[in-house]
Simulated scan of single mutants.
Amino acid sequence: MTIPDHAAGNMVECERVAIDAAGRLVVPGRFRKALGIQGPQHLVIGLEGDTLRLSTTDGVIRRYQDLARRRKRTPGSVVDAFIAERRREAAEE
């Protein structure tokens, strides 16, 4: 089924699942397939209001890398820029 996600302004695919007595839930096969989940692996879970959000670790890493790239203001390596700044400061002392 598809429901509206008013916060994001789009439609979200969803499916009803059960949680067993031990607190486990089964991620439906169509969602595992869409995310490339094969066999046992770790996921990242987050709480957003009354919503649980499951993400693959690779997906979370990609989102943070994209965020870092968008926020990067200087060309080249951030590490190299940091080291050069420290060397300039040391030379001024």
Rank of each mutant, 00 (worst) to 15 (best):
M1P: 02
I3E: 05
D5M: 02
D5R: 05
H6R: 10
H6S: 04
A7T: 11
G9K: 02
M11T: 14
V12E: 09
C14M: 07
R16Q: 09
I19L: 07
I19K: 04
A22E: 12
G23H: 02
G23S: 04
G23I: 05
V26Y: 08
V27A: 03
V27M: 08
V27H: 01
G29W: 02
R30F: 15
R32L: 06
L35Q: 04
G36Y: 05
G36C: 03
I37T: 03
I37F: 02
Q38D: 10
Q41L: 08
H42A: 10
L43H: 01
L43D: 00
L47V: 15
E48C: 12
G49A: 09
D50G: 11
D50W: 06
L52G: 03
L54C: 05
L54V: 10
L54M: 12
S55I: 02
S55L: 11
T57R: 14
D58Y: 05
I61D: 06
I61K: 06
R62D: 15
R62S: 13
R63Y: 09
R63M: 11
Q65C: 13
D66C: 08
D66S: 14
L67P: 04
R69C: 09
R69L: 13
R70P: 00
R73L: 10
T74V: 11
T74H: 14
P75M: 07
G76D: 07
G76A: 04
V78K: 13
D80Q: 11
A81H: 14
E85A: 15
E85D: 15
E85H: 14
R86Y: 12
R87K: 14
R87A: 12
R87C: 10
R88S: 14
R88N: 15
R88C: 14
E89Q: 13
A90I: 13
E92V: 15
